[in-house]
């Protein structure tokens, strides 16, 4: 890929990605105000967040793996069940994964 082609690729793709983001913001509010739509939006939020947990916790490229992230998520879930504050949950998860990897696992 020549330098010019590379730049054109980068700029066109960036423009397309921005247009997609802006398109969502420009959806008329009246479309979203309907009771059924707001109910679906709430469920979509749950699905998106749960899906991000699975992707971020179990995906390694296109493979599903069990590594140090899984015990870290278990520690995070326990901390959440004990009503630990957000930052503590995140730090405990990072420390668990980092600790296990320092010991040579995951």
């Amino acid at each position: 890929m020549t330098t010019t082609t590379l730049w054109v690729t980068v700029l066109v793709a960036s423009l397309a990605c921005y247009a997609l983001k802006l398109g969502g913001h420009l959806v008329p509010r009246s479309w979203l105000a309907a009771e059924r739509v707001s109910r679906i939006t709430t469920l979509v939020t749950v699905a998106l967040l749960v899906s991000l947990v699975v992707v971020q916790g179990f995906a390694d490229g296109s493979a599903l793996t069990v590594d140090a992230r899984v015990p870290a998520l278990a520690v995070a879930a326990l901390a959440l069940a004990l009503r630990a504050p957000f930052i503590l949950v995140v730090v405990l998860a990072a420390a668990t994964a980092a600790g296990l990897r320092a010991l040579g696992w995951g």
């Binding site: 967040l49 947990v53 971020q56 995070a76 949950v89 998860a93 990072a94 994964a97």
Partner: peptide
């Protein structure tokens, strides 16, 4: 960044965000 557990931190952050909605 994995050595610092940052991938697990991101996963835990998403879990913490969805937790009260479940």
């Amino acid at each position: 960044p994995r050595a610092w557990g940052l991938d697990a931190a991101a996963a835990a952050a998403f879990l913490a965000l969805v937790w009260p909605r479940l």
